[in-house]
Amino acid sequence: MNISHIEHIGIAVNSIDEAIPYYENMLGLKCYAVEEVADQKVKTAFFMVGDTKIELLESTDPEGPIGKFIEKKGPGVHHLAFAVDNVNDSLAELEEKGVRLIDQKARKGAEGLNIGFLHPKSTMGVLTEICGKE
């Protein structure tokens, strides 16, 4: 597995419309995309910080993963995502090394990326996403 960089940091928010002004007006970042990923029950907004993105995540369904996260822990950092060459190959390699997977195979995420999540019980408590364009 070849990790090239931190692809993004996912931050759960109650409302993207309320969060975007903080990132734009206070931090001087520019939201360049807002997208809904229906099968993940989430609306996303993206900001570039150098080569890394900040991804805001708003639940579109209280029973979705972000809705449940916010209900349990409140808004805040949700996950850390690493860019890899091939998500399926990386998932297989990590599983062989004993990492517990949430996703056995890559699935489609925001911005057309293929994504796969690793269980935080295997990643020092940090929900970890691997993603790639392949």
Results as ranks from 00 to 15, higher is better:
M1G: 12
L118K: 09
T123D: 12
H79Y: 06
T128S: 12
K105L: 07
V42R: 00
L118V: 09
S4H: 04
E134M: 03
E93Y: 10
R107K: 15
I9Y: 01
V13D: 07
S90M: 05
Y32T: 08
K108Y: 02
I115Q: 11
N88C: 05
A81K: 01
V99L: 06
D17S: 12
L113W: 09
L113G: 00
E129C: 08
I16V: 11
D61S: 11
L27G: 10
V34Y: 00
G10E: 08
Q104N: 11
E134P: 12
T128A: 08
G112Q: 10
L127G: 03
K30C: 09
D17E: 15
P120Y: 07
E111M: 14
G10H: 01
H5A: 11
D85V: 00
A45C: 06
T44E: 09
I102E: 14
E18Y: 00
Q40H: 14
G116M: 09
H8G: 07
H79R: 04
C31V: 12
F117Q: 11
L113E: 11
E134D: 14
A45D: 07
E93A: 15
D89Q: 14
D85E: 15
D89W: 00
G109D: 12
L113C: 06
M124I: 10
Y23C: 06
M1A: 11
L118T: 12
M48D: 15
E96F: 00
R100P: 02
E36K: 10
V13P: 05
G28N: 10
T52M: 12
M124R: 11
A12E: 10
C31L: 02
G125P: 04
H5K: 15
L80Y: 01
S15H: 08
I102W: 02
A12M: 05
L91C: 08
M124S: 14
